[in-house]
Amino acid sequence: MTTSRARNDVLVGLSIVVVSVLLLAGVLWLRQADLGRERKRLVARTRDVGSLQVGNPVVIRGVRAGTVQGIALGGDGWVAIDLKLDREVELPPEPAVLLYASSLFGEWQAMVTSVPALPADRALQSQIRDAAGRRDTLPAAMVPDIAQLTAVAGRIAGDVANVAERVRVAFDDTAAFELRGTIRDFASLSRELSRTVTAQSKNLDRVSGDAAVAMRALRAATDNVQRVAGRVDSTTSRGELAAIVADVQRSAKDILTAAEQVKSIAGRLDRTGGDLERAIASADTVLARVKRGQGTLGLLSTDSSVYRNTDSLLIELRALVKDVKANPKRYVNVRIF
């Protein structure tokens, strides 16, 4: 009985201990706990860590070199990231930390890289410059993950949809019809232009031919001129031409004087014509106003009552003058003192 009880105790205790130890070891192994292992600690700071979590891997040149040990909110809008790296790991020169999604399934990691090796992204480099400046802290920046990019793409798609909607509203059936008409007109215009070009090219060919003929004629004329010049030379040598030239010069001077006089007369005629045009335009304006019944003349010409009033006024004025002449004392009373 005692042996059986002792056996029970041993079996139960052994089962509990073995299973507990194995479970604990398994959990520690899966959590990648480092019991007593020396680690190097680094602190990085950034404005936003995205979906980075404690326990996410830290990689250097793609090789796992540690884990994210802690994430805490800091002052002035910073977030401090505590990184634990293997002791033997060497940091690159000018180190900086990039936080990014390592897969489409929400896994994030921190990559320690050097500032010159950062991607040529202005926003990213601006974040790194912003976070730099403290000697004991690495600058860090978050690379947008696919969700953020998708959100941006979604906004862009929304804008495109808005534009498309506006185009759809603006480009209704009438606009389409007009556009079709425009395209048809443009096609016919193109055909017309093509025909014109074809015709003009034929004309050009003809002109070219005519020009060639003209050139030939010109060459013949030049030959004739050369022959005439030879004769003129022979004439000049006899002194007859000097007299002709002198006569021609005199005649030309007279013609020039006459031409200047004609030009002066023509100028005056021009000015007179301009004055006449302006006078006619004024008269037209006056006549138009008269015709429309505007102004005194217009009223006189269109409103008979004005004419009648004026006429009776003239009659009364005439009677008044007559009465003044007949009885001046009635109207003029000159007194001294």
Binding site: S15, I16, V19, S20, L22, L23, G26
Partner: peptide, 16 residues
């Protein structure tokens, strides 16, 4: 109550 978790713990290890 005590031994069920032991058996289940062993089952977890073996299942994995």
């Amino acid at each position: 109550t005590v031994m069920f978790p032991v058996v289940v713990g062993a089952a977890m290890l073996v299942g994995l």
